[in-house]
Write a protein that binds this DNA or RNA. Structure first.
Lengths: 237, 237
DNA sequence: TGTTCAATTTGAACATGTTCAGAAGGAGCA
DNA sequence: TGCTCCTTCTGAACATGTTCAAATTGAACA
C-alpha cells in the first residue's frame, strides 16, 4: 500500500493498513516521482511523457497510474513533498522578527527560492481552477496542503507586533493565502530577467498589505473592514 | 480566407485580402462554430470531440483545424462573438444611471446573464493563465478583446458622478477588469443554487469597491493610493 | 510445502487532440 | 481548353494520457 503522503489524489486507495514488513516497499512510488521530476526538468512538463517516466522508473506505464491518478497528480505529490522540505526554512522565518511585512516577505521568498528550478512545473497546477478537480489548489483533496500553508500565515499574524483588529484576525490568513497564490501565479509566468518584476510586485504589494492592515484599525475605516470580512466569509462559504 | 473576426488565434492566416466574390464563403467557419457550440452545450466541452464537431459541421476534421488552432480556440471565437452580441445591452447600461456601483453591477450582470447557458464552456479558457498561450485572457492574441472589455470600464468611470482622483483614473479600468475576471472565475465554478453565492459576492464586493474608490480621495489615504497605482503599473509592466 | 488472497505490476488497447502530405476547387490568364 | 497558383478541404497517421483485464508477487496461514 503506497504512502498516500497526505495527498489523496492518488489513483487507487485500498483500505489503508499493512502487515508491517512492507516498510520500504514504497520505493516504487518514489522512483516514479524521481523519474518524473528529472524528466520534467529536462524536457518540461508537457514534453515529458508518461511512457518515458515509467521507463526511467523501470516500471510499466500502468504502475505509474497505480500510484498517481494523473500526470498532474505527480506534480501535486512534488508540491506536497516540497512543502515538507521547506518547513524548516519557513520555521526560521518566525524567529528573527516580529514585523509582519518582513515575515511575509521571507515566507514568500523562501518558497520562490525553493521552486526556482521548477517554476514551469507549477504551471501544470494552475490549469485547474475547478475546485472539483482533485489537483486544484481549491479542492477538498488538497485541503491539507492548503491548511498547512495557511498556518504559516496564521502564525505570522499571531507573532507579529502589529495591532490587528480581532474580527479581521480570523479571516486574514485566508486573505494572505489568496494573496500569496496571486503572487505565485504572477511569478510562474513572469518572463522578466530573474523574475525581477515579481520581486518588485512583492515589495510593493507587501507595503500595501501592511499599510492596509495598519489602516484597518482606524475608526473611520471600520465599515470598510466589515465589508472585507463579510466578503471573505462569502467566498469561503 | 476565413474571417479572422478580430481574434488571431486561428490556425493559418494567409495574407488577408480577397478577390471580392468570396463574400459569403465563410460559412464553413460558422458551421464549425455552430456545431461546436451545440455539442459543447449537449455534452460539455470535454466530452464533445473534434471528430463529432467536424461531422456535425459536415466537414473533415482537418477543416476544423484549418479555421481554429485548437479546440480551445473555438471557445475563444465564441467569446469574441459573444462580446459583439452583448454590446447593445452593455451600451444600455450607461444611459440609465451615473452611479458607478450600479453601472458596474449592470455590466457584470449583463455578461453573466448572457453566459448563463455556457458557464461550463468558459471554464475551458481558465485553463490558460500563461500569457504566451494564444487563448489566454492575458495574451497578445486576445488584447483586442481585453481592450474592448476594459473600454466599458473606462466609460463607466468617465460617466460616473463619483469624485475619482486623476492619477487613479488612469489605472482604474485595469483594476476593474481584473476584478471582473475574478468575479467571472468565481462564477464559473460556483456550484451554489442559481449561483447565489456569486450574486452575493458581487453585491458585497461592489460595495467595497465603491467605498474604496470614494475613500481613495481622502488626504489621509493618499500614500495608500499611490502604492496601489504603483503596483498596477508594475503588473502591466 | 501448498493454498489463498489482496496488493502490485504489466502492457495492449483505447480515446482523442493534433499534424500533414496531398487532393479538390476555382480564379485569372493565354 | 489548358496551365498556374492559391485557398480550402480531406482523412490517415501520429502522439500521448488513460484504462483495464489479466498476470505476478509475497505474506499469512494451514
Amino acid at each position: 500500500m503506497p504512502d498516500q503522503s497526505a495527498v489523496n489524489v492518488d489513483a487507487k486507495n485500498p483500505s489503508a493498513l499493512g502487515g508491517g514488513a512492507q516498510a520500504r516497499k514504497e520505493t516504487t512510488r518514489d522512483q516514479i516521482v524521481a523519474a518524473a521530476l528529472d524528466l520534467f526538468r529536462e524536457r518540461g512538463f508537457e514534453a515529458a511523457t508518461m511512457r518515458e517516466i515509467a521507463a526511467r522508473a523501470h516500471v510499466a506505464i500502468g504502475a505509474a497510474y497505480y500510484y498517481f491518478a494523473s500526470k498532474d497528480a505527480i506534480v501535486l505529490a512534488f508540491y506536497d513533498r516540497a512543502q515538507k522540505e521547506m518547513a524548516p526554512k519557513l520555521e526560521d522565518t518566525f524567529s528573527s522578527t516580529r514585523d509582519l511585512r518582513l515575515t511575509l516577505d521571507r515566507l514568500i521568498t523562501v518558497k520562490l527560492e525553493y521552486f526556482k528550478t521548477s517554476r514551469a512545473l507549477l504551471a501544470a497546477l494552475t490549469a485547474h481552477a475547478d475546485p472539483d478537480s482533485p489537483v486544484s489548489p481549491f479542492s477538498v483533496a488538497t485541503r491539507e496542503i492548503r491548511e498547512r500553508d495557511m498556518d504559516y500565515f496564521r502564525r505570522a499574524i499571531a507573532i507579529s507586533n502589529s495591532r490587528i483588529p480581532k474580527d479581521l484576525q480570523r479571516c486574514l490568513p485566508q486573505i494572505l493565502w489568496m494573496y500569496q497564490m496571486g503572487v505565485i501565479l504572477f511569478w510562474i509566468y513572469d518572463r522578466s530577467n530573474e523574475q525581477r518584476r515579481t520581486r518588485s510586485l512583492i515589495d510593493k504589494s507587501l507595503r500595501l498589505v501592511a499599510a492596509l492592515i495598519k489602516a484597518s484599525g482606524l475608526p473611520l475605516l471600520k465599515p470598510l473592514r466589515h465589508l472585507v470580512i463579510d466578503l471573505v466569509e462569502t467566498v469561503e462559504s
